[in-house]
Design a protein around this nucleic acid. Structure first.
Ligand SMILES: [Zn+2]
Ligand SMILES: [Zn+2]
Ligand SMILES: [Zn+2]
Ligand SMILES: [Zn+2]
Lengths: 134, 134
DNA sequence: GGCCCATTTGACAATGATTCTCATTACCGC
DNA sequence: GCGGTAATGAGAATCATTGTCAAATGGGCC
């Protein structure tokens, strides 16, 4: 019973469409890009609805959100478990990573300074093998 | 010779004022807030200039920038050496932290996936001792 | 000091992502 | 099917940030 009992909400055509398109890429995309993908697929979904749906999914931890250097929010369907991201600075290719080492480290550091009720954000940026050889 | 030879630029009244006000707080503040602080101090500096100056400082790694949950950029005068932040979610109190453990971990993970040319962002959020007892 | 000029500034417009509004529409249980 | 509520969409509104461009200014030089 980790989190199955959510307010649910109605499974509308638009929400299904967004959920589906989220499966079609594995890097981070902006709301506008996602809206574009939907349109390209012939799915008609209002931009505002795309924004609303993505926020709902983010609140439910069903997508991860992060901010580009320019401050734009980008979204990605991710594992439900805690993890971080290794992102290609060039093509966006993303790998989910995890490890007890960082988790331990952040907790230790925070304890040391008396901070409680912790959370953390960590992303690693680099150039992926494909872009390196390209 | 790590990086002392920068284009420099002119030490104008406005740039000095921004540099000074950056010393007056140790949490992260938005460009608009910083502009407000300047105005409060009686220093007249145009908002656009505040933005430009902060960007210049950020480019020169003399201030750290991060994004709030809402996407707003916030700035802070920081140590010139690589470090991360432990930030109070309630009052913003910020501690600079560092440790070889994470650095090692991120490098190992990236190597493992063949990513090169690395960098990373890591912030820890929590409630500081002061806010806990408050 | 005073002059020359590239740099910097500031007022204001422009941009662009995101959110709000509100009339219309689509689920869902009965 | 009906009714009522939750959801949608078109467009306006918001708001941080950036662009524009004429006016001001710092520095080097005589
Ligand atoms: Zn993720
Ligand atoms: Zn790549
Ligand atoms: Zn605090
Ligand atoms: Zn680090």
């Amino acid at each position: 019973m980790t989190s199955t009992d959510r307010p649910a909400g109605r499974p509308t055509r638009q929400r299904r469409a967004v959920a589906e398109v989220l499966e079609s890429f594995d890097d981070f995309r902006s709301a506008q890009e996602i809206h574009g993908l939907l349109t390209a697929r012939g799915q008609t979904v209002g931009l505002a609805t795309v924004y609303r749906t993505l926020q709902r999914l983010a609140d439910a931890d069903e997508v991860d959100v992060l901010r580009t250097e320019e401050g734009e929010a980008v979204y990605r369907r991710c594992s439900p478990t805690h993890h971080h991201h290794l992102v290609c600075r060039t093509c966006g290719a993303t790998v989910e990573v995890e490890g007890p080492a960082v988790e331990r480290w952040t907790r230790a550091i925070a304890d040391e300074h008396g901070y409680a009720d912790l959370s953390h954000h960590l992303e690693i940026f680099g150039t992926c093998p494909a872009c390196l050889s390209g």
